[in-house]
Design a protein around this nucleic acid. Structure first.
Lengths: 352, 352
DNA sequence: CTGAAAGCGCTTACAG
DNA sequence: CTGAAAGCGCTTACAG
């Protein structure tokens, strides 16, 4: 009997029971060593450690967590793994969480799959759920309500204004206000908006910021700002910016400064203007958003807004980890991150 | 007694036992509905489903997996979450795995943390582990040996030549050979290598490809190729390319075509040459690698190599999922992905 | 068609 | 300082 158990092949040890038998100790003792509990003979510890290294035995986390050990996992819902700022935040968050002993579970949350993503996280008993990106309002609000009902902490990064949601987000209004101040200081009074026209989510914040800057100078948005977004299929990329610039270039009377939704649009617009013989910033100024790597690789380099991802993620971790192991807060926690204007070559004084 | 259990607050249901009691059925029955097993009255199913929706109860995956249910999780080790091609592969892989019902666990594997990352995956009983990126040879080989000993399938994406490793990787040698053929066809005979000098991992493959192309024309690498990589701190980014171009521009006699390790270096080099008054491609040709978005945003647009990420990931999924649920293969499986040359504006005929 | 009972691999009082 | 036993929340034969 005993012999039939001892396989001739050194088969993989899959449980503390097998492992304990292998070392010649009780499961209890092995478990204590594994968990670094005090009150063990140094020799015993060493014996277990050595066998651990020799056999490569990995205790089953599922059993441990079933017994109530915390999972130390955080679920992260991503809008998409394609936009550079979102990936930057994911990377920074993952790194920070890892340094605090948490591992990250990642799910891409496309319209309609959010429910499954969150349920999957809950079934894995994550300690909190983070959302990075811009989601359909009703969908994310429904998910947050679920999480609250479930007693699981959550945090939304970068989508402000959601009911009941804890959020950390860049102050996009302040960013646009600073950008407009900069352009107004350069003498610009007519602005072309590239992809920033009224729309869902964060674009509204941007318009608020633009309006605030204009109001300070007693200027009205309707008279100063123009958008041709409706002329082209919206894609928020280089080509979109290029086409918009082409359309603006064809106008008899056109704005002197152009405010892009992001860096790709801005770079596309610069190209579009250059193709029509306009020099940037001599003839027109163009600004971007996000301070992506590409924004300093082009010629001219792009004036843009840095998202301060580090600061965002530090605040995120603080809010998130602060919620762990205590009752959910009654009121949602809201944090705002100050953006930073990055002035480069693509913005200059209005042409006399 | 029974009453004291019914909390006045609608507290969260945390187990099938509680849930079953709530619905008035046995745990067994609830479990069957949850797992979509046949042989249940339609009415029973409906009753459970409704209660499920009402209470938001999520069964504990840890208990289910402990009973032997497969985890349907794949562990992904990333070199870094910063390089665009790696992130592109991660995104594509995550999406594909999700569509097959697998979820992805992601760990960033920095030198020295690999052991913990893999052990963490194993403790969560992932069904396979994927490595994306270029890792320290000894470290990744040790991890792969561990996985093999453990009986867990693995796959390495983009790092060829590892002992015992299943790999799917771009044929970088073929890519460079095609690139050199292209430049040779344009009349170039002297090449500047930007960041491609002898080094670890994939760079060697590239040199092999370059050499092959030259040999076909009876040219020798030592005479045709020049590298100034040693002059600047290696960073593989825009600035590195820019500095290298500056150094090459200062030479009395310089190559006519420059082969960059990646797109950022190529774009930096273009800028560096332009700053020294050299036009691209009129005076010098410059090529990149990866076909990142940025490579068509610059002026001139960059001739580069597309990694065929889709094809890579499809092959990866095939190799990976093919290993599941069967004994590990005796010999490692190796797949090579054909690259695609993308000819744009930055390469042109050699100046007469 | 539904249910009572055993058992997965851990941790944790409780004994010794 | 170490060990035997109970129990976490599921699934799955086995009964009925």
């Amino acid at each position: 009997m005993a012999n039939s158990r001892q396989k001739t092949l050194p088969s993989v040890i899959r449980s503390t029971a097998e492992f304990a038998q292998h070392v010649g100790l009780a499961r209890t003792t092995v478990s204590r060593v594994l968990n670094g509990q005090p009150g063990l003979k140094a020799k015993t510890i060493e014996r277990v450690q050595r066998a651990l290294a020799e056999t490569g035995f990995t205790p089953n986390a599922f059993a441990a967590h079933l017994k109530g050990k915390r999972t130390a996992m955080i679920g992260i819902c991503m809008e998409d793994l394609a936009t550079p700022p979102a990936v930057g935040k994911l990377a920074a968050l993952q790194k920070l969480l890892r340094s605090r002993g948490f591992s990250s579970l990642i799910e891409v949350f496309t319209p309609g799959t959010g429910r499954d993503a969150v349920r999957h996280f809950l079934s894995l008993r994550v300690e909190a759920v983070v959302f990075i990106g811009q989601f359909l309002r009703e969908e994310i609000e429904a998910r947050i309500a679920e999480l609250i009902a479930n007693g699981t902490p959550h945090l939304v990064i970068d989508q402000a204004g959601l009911a009941q949601a804890n959020t950390v987000s860049l102050d996009r209004a302040a960013a646009m206000e600073a950008m407009l101040d900069h352009l107004l200081d350069l003498g610009h009074r007519r602005f072309g908006l590239l992809g920033v026209s009224t729309g869902p989510g964060s674009k509204i914040d941007r318009l608020v910021g633009i309006e605030a800057a204009l109001r300070k100078r007693r200027l009205a948005m309707e008279e100063c700002c123009q958008s041709l977004d409706h002329l082209h299929e919206r894609a928020n990329d280089f080509e979109f910016g290029r086409k918009l610039a082409g359309s603006f270039a064809a106008l008899e009377e056109r704005p002197t400064a152009f405010v892009g939704l992001n860096d790709a649009i801005a770079i596309g617009a610069v190209r579009g203007f250059q193709e029509r013989g306009l020099k940037v910033p001599r003839d027109v100024s163009v600004t971007g958003f996000n301070n992506q790597e590409i924004s300093h690789m082009t010629s001219p380099t792009i004036t843009t807004v840095d998202q301060s991802i580090e600061k965002t993620i530090e605040a995120a971790a603080e809010v998130l980890l602060g919620q762990l192991g205590r009752p959910l807060p009654k009121r949602p926690e809201l944090r705002t991150i100050a953006p930073q204007l990055v002035i480069r070559e693509s913005s200059g004084p209005v042409r006399a």
